[in-house]
Amino acid sequence: MCVQQPIAVLDSGVGGLTVVKEVLRQLPREKVIYFGDTARTPYGPRPAEEVVRFTREIVDYLIQYRPKMVVIACNTATAVALEDICSLVDVPVVGVIQPGARAAIGRTQTGVIGVIGTEGTIRSGAYEQVLKELSPHIKVISEACPAFVPLVEKGNFRSAETLQTVHRELDHLRGYQIDTLILGCTHYPFLSDTISEVMGHNVALISSADETAREISAILHDKNKLALNEDLPVHQFLCSGDPRIFKRIAEQWLGEQIELTPVVWQVPQIG
């Protein structure tokens, strides 16, 4: 039965847990297997071909679990590897850029949308391309914020250092008439309180996690592959780096959503 197969979610590190949190909330019967490539994070500064290779390696590893869907919960990998992965597997592949862009278009009033992301995501121009396809007259202000991912990977979500870093990266964006800011990296929602404080509460922050989870649900429903079992699924969380930091951040972020659910933690060999 395909409906009992897991949803495979991958990211360069802990950022994709923001997507997992929404999947667990919206689709509590679904089993999730998550791979965070914490040993090789961040992906943003890496050449595109290297990110494609890393993404392929992770997907090749996850395919052994016979997932019914692959979710690339990393904006950098979505930008450069989505089409490649779609051609390699015979299950639906979902990225995080399209859902986030659609949500931003629906939210903006001024037509000026900001996008912050890793160097790789911003360099690819993927968000601007999708936003312009959806609404040609939208003005897009893009900015790479490479200092954010290392903060999140250390679990440093709110501190004087975090506030100082966010001010340094984003202060100049306040000179534009941005009313909607896409958090174009799944790590960034961990810093959303500080980002909102710096940008001002009149700027709507768009995390693609919510919209991505809705898209996952819609695709599974359309293909009649939603899990129907009453038993709680056993989720699997895998990382390629230090499992202690990864587990601490995962438990802190997912909270009660995994307290009531059996979880298996693993550190596989990959790459």
Rank of each mutant, 00 (worst) to 15 (best):
M1V: 11
L10E: 12
D11N: 02
S12R: 00
G15K: 00
K21I: 11
K21H: 12
P28Y: 11
P28V: 02
E30Q: 14
V32Y: 10
Y34K: 08
F35Y: 15
G36N: 04
D37F: 00
A39K: 12
G44C: 05
P45D: 01
R46F: 01
R46P: 03
A48W: 04
R53Q: 13
F54I: 01
E57L: 12
E57H: 10
I58M: 13
V59C: 03
Y61S: 02
L62C: 07
R66N: 14
M69E: 10
T76F: 05
A77K: 02
T78V: 08
A81N: 08
I85R: 12
I85F: 02
I85A: 03
S87R: 14
V91H: 01
P92A: 09
V93H: 01
V94N: 00
Q98K: 15
G100S: 03
I105Q: 10
T108A: 12
T110L: 10
G114I: 07
T121D: 05
I122F: 08
K132R: 15
E133T: 14
P136W: 06
K139M: 06
V140P: 03
S142T: 00
P150L: 08
P150E: 07
L151C: 03
G155W: 06
N156E: 15
R158I: 15
E161M: 10
T162P: 05
L163W: 10
L163Y: 10
Q164V: 06
T165A: 04
T165R: 01
V166D: 11
D171Y: 10
H172C: 04
L181M: 12
T186D: 01
S192V: 01
D193I: 00
D193L: 06
T194N: 12
G200F: 13
H201Y: 09
N202V: 11
L205Y: 07
A209E: 03
E211W: 07
R214H: 14
E215M: 12
E215W: 03
S217V: 09
S217C: 13
S217Q: 15
S217F: 12
I219R: 14
L220H: 10
D222H: 14
K223W: 07
K225E: 15
K225P: 00
K225H: 13
A227L: 02
E230R: 07
L232T: 02
P233E: 11
F237M: 08
L238G: 04
S240G: 09
D242F: 05
K247Y: 02
R248Y: 06
A250W: 03
A250K: 03
Q252K: 11
W253A: 07
I258P: 10
L260C: 09
T261Q: 12
P262C: 05
V263H: 02
V267E: 08
Q269P: 03
G271E: 11
